[in-house]
Design a protein around this nucleic acid. Sequence first.
DNA 1: CCGCCGATTTGATCCAGATCAATGCGCCCT
DNA 2: AGGGCGCATTGATCTGGATCAAATCGGCGG
Lengths: 234, 234
Amino acid sequence: MNCHPTACGDGGCRSCMVRLVSVCASLTDDELALLESLAHPTHFASGATLFTQGREAHSVYNVTAGVVRLYKLLSDGRRQVVGFALPGDFLGLAMRDAYGFSADAIGDVAVCAFARGAYTALVDAKPHLLKRLHEFATHELTLAHEQMMLLGRRTAEEKLICFLLGMQQRWARLGKPSVTVPLPMTRQDIADFLGLTIETVSRTFTRLAREKTILIVPGGVRVMNAARMSAVAA
Amino acid sequence: MNCHPTACGDGGCRSCMVRLVSVCASLTDDELALLESLAHPTHFASGATLFTQGREAHSVYNVTAGVVRLYKLLSDGRRQVVGFALPGDFLGLAMRDAYGFSADAIGDVAVCAFARGAYTALVDAKPHLLKRLHEFATHELTLAHEQMMLLGRRTAEEKLICFLLGMQQRWARLGKPSVTVPLPMTRQDIADFLGLTIETVSRTFTRLAREKTILIVPGGVRVMNAARMSAVAA
DNA sequence: CCGCCGATTTGATCCAGATCAATGCGCCCT
DNA sequence: AGGGCGCATTGATCTGGATCAAATCGGCGG
């Protein structure tokens, strides 16, 4: 399901850069051709909204480039970021008729969009696609349980360290292993993901940098003391 | 997948009391017969362990009676309850080779157990069972997102009220609609579910009771001011 | 009926992280 | 180069919920 020019060579889905890590990895060549005919490659500028919590779910998406912020709002404006979608991630697992959360672009984002009806029909017709989707959902659920542990029982420093190691691992699985962790989201986004305030996030980053656990660089942080960080994450 | 005598009449799965709300609702009569041959009806006494986080996942379970506490532990003993499984709930969505959390019985519990291999084979052979499982996983994921919002951004009072309303709704969906919400779990379990301490849970209950929002009764609470509670849950 | 033990409630005090309040720093636009 | 505007950092203070510490309750075995 990854067919945007940004992510593809000339071969469409078949040469999609994120195909092997996405839900599409399970499809045969002819299924991929069918899929490609249903895909709407779309681009969102920085800050643009992909969809809004509570609105009717007309499309599902596969992220092919960029990072997407997923969040829920309370009526008084309190915000909880429920995740950051990276290339290869699928948005459309946790929705019935209405979107259960909002999604907007952090930096420029490319996706493959699929009309809900076509997506549902395809899933019904292709059991191994459904199996793959279910594996994704299962993995998401495991991550959600870990996030509950983090939100409910970890200190601010632990939260931040777990977040950094988690992002590092996710980028590594996408083929970008590095001691420098890109953080395209704002401090406020990180705070809303970890259940903290922006000030606490900022102070904790500063403290970790002062004690040389990390080095803060433009657009991210460099892991300087992975051993200590892994120990804290336990 | 609900075949324990406690939940059944004489007809096995077909007359299972929780079948219509469980994953088995999608199966035909002959599929149900097949399922019944694979099911191991099992009983757990209060406090018994169904399975432990990190151990190899040998079985999946469908709860037919009682309540199960699902939780993760940190090495230093901090605990996060990730959920309470009620009759009809399926335990086996969020696991790969090893259990991602521990589960133990709150009061006496009856389940249908299925060997992992047989379960996997059955799911591969029956796409509409997979579809049903995927719907369950999707629903779980939505609940997990709501729990993240609750853990990250809600106050102690809001947490408790959302918890009570959520439990009330879950019992209602199981055919037990009532203003009295049964709470078979301990205060410590509730605290570990909501990311609070037992003292804060106790004090908040007492305060809600003092202002006549709830009435504390043996084994649960009675909702006295549903309007105010719904308003707080927003 | 009594004594015990774990669960719960209640009280006093503490503190991690929130809130309130300035600055500081890039970066784009002119 | 200057100036304005988000974002981020830093500092001072406050507070919701944690922690420490007793009671009190309730069920069960003897």
